[in-house]
Amino acid sequence: MDTTKGDSTVTTRRIDIIDIHVHVRTGDHAKVWERDRYVPANQEGFSDHPDAMADMYRELNGMAVIFDIDDETRTGLKASNEEIAQWVARHPDVYIGFGSVDPWKGKAAIIEVERCAALGLKGIKFHPAVQDFAPNDPRFFPLWETCARLGLAVLFHSGTTMAGAGQPGGAGIRLEYGRPIPYIDDIAARFPELRIIMAHPAWPWHEEQLAILRHKPNVFMDLSGWAPKYIPESVIRYANSLVQDKVFFGSDFPMLTPHRWLREFAELPIKDSVRPKILRDNAARFLGLTHLVEHALPASE
């Protein structure tokens, strides 16, 4: 049972986790996926259909931020923000929607960001390496100005990527665009009201990522895309201490299941006081879902 209070969905069920990094295929991406009958990326048998995903997160007492990536200029494939909004409307107790825009579309990209806000989406996902752009290029400053003005968070892929891995020339994808310094640091300095999430431990530049987290109040990170046992030790150490209020749980489903991520996270030397921050509380505050923290049930209930 759900009610709406302002812009936030209020759920009466218990919420233990918020997965801030979950992929949903929309538009052309969904058509290509179905046409080519790809084998699901995860190996634990969980469906990546959004209805099944919603049930999966309900069983985990969780919520999830869902999005696609619009890389039409580079690949010819367009994502659909309307479909993201439709999945959120279908499962409002589970899903929070982020849109995606192709930054190379100029004024059309700005209009699409505004439309994402009108659709009720809470942020915009970018993948600089896949979308082939440098976030600190002045040509894209109007995007960051618009997102800041509308209160939309921006989620940037950071670090290396498996997209194009093993293909000739890495399919033309330049890993440098996933580097936190100068790209994320620059726009965080220029647009202090812009709320930024760096997706993934930014290996091999994770030390730069940690420096930005300490220096820029408007920058956060998620731990998605890495099985916790492989997350660099320095990232775990800082997440457990100096940046414990700026780190979010993320799985990168369907690339990695939340089940595996949570199993391995439970084995890490994380303080009991920090675990709920990473798993739920930090994201709840960032997304304006403070009721999930204020009315959280003890683990024994």
Score class of each variant (00 low, 15 high):
V235T: 13
D93I: 00
P232G: 01
E207S: 07
Q131V: 02
F67H: 15
K122A: 09
G106E: 02
E208A: 04
L175T: 07
A299L: 10
N240V: 05
V10R: 06
E264P: 03
Y183V: 04
V130P: 00
G123T: 00
H259V: 14
A202V: 03
E267P: 01
A153W: 07
P276G: 01
H29Q: 15
V235D: 12
D272N: 12
Q86L: 09
M221I: 12
A79H: 11
V32N: 03
K277N: 08
M53P: 01
G45E: 11
V293I: 15
K122G: 07
D185V: 01
P269R: 05
F253Q: 04
E193R: 11
G106R: 06
H91S: 00
L121G: 01
M63P: 01
D68E: 14
P258C: 08
R35T: 13
R237D: 15
L256T: 10
Y57V: 12
E114N: 05
H23N: 12
C147P: 02
A165M: 06
R35P: 03
D132S: 15
G170D: 08
S300P: 04
F133W: 13
D36C: 08
T161I: 12
V101D: 14
I173S: 05
D272E: 14
T4N: 00
G6P: 00
Y183G: 02
G106M: 02
E82V: 05
H200S: 07
A239F: 04
C116S: 09
P180F: 06
D132V: 11
V65I: 15
I84Q: 10
L60I: 05
D19W: 13
S251L: 03
I84L: 09
I187G: 08
T26N: 10
K229L: 11
I197Q: 03
R174H: 09
F286L: 07
Q167D: 03
D185F: 02
F286Y: 14
E207M: 11
M255Y: 15
V243N: 09
L262V: 03
V39D: 10
R237M: 10
D272I: 08
D252F: 12
D51N: 14
A109F: 11
S158I: 00
D132G: 07
H215E: 15
L289W: 13
I278N: 00
P142E: 13
V113T: 14
A299I: 06
V154P: 01
P40R: 14
W203E: 15
P180G: 00
A163G: 03
P258T: 00
P138W: 13
G76W: 07
A85M: 09
G62D: 14
D281P: 03
M1H: 05
A41M: 11
P40V: 14
A188N: 01
E208I: 04
L210T: 04
L77Y: 13
I15L: 05
R237N: 11
T146H: 08
I69H: 10
D102V: 02
T75H: 13
W205N: 10
D272M: 05
P276Y: 09
D272A: 15
A171D: 14
L292Y: 06
T160G: 13
L119D: 07
D68V: 00
A199P: 02
P50S: 09
G99Y: 14
V88I: 06
T146E: 15
L279M: 10
R14Q: 12
G45V: 10
I231N: 00
E82D: 15
I111K: 15
I270G: 04
A284W: 10
H291T: 10
S241P: 02
D19F: 12
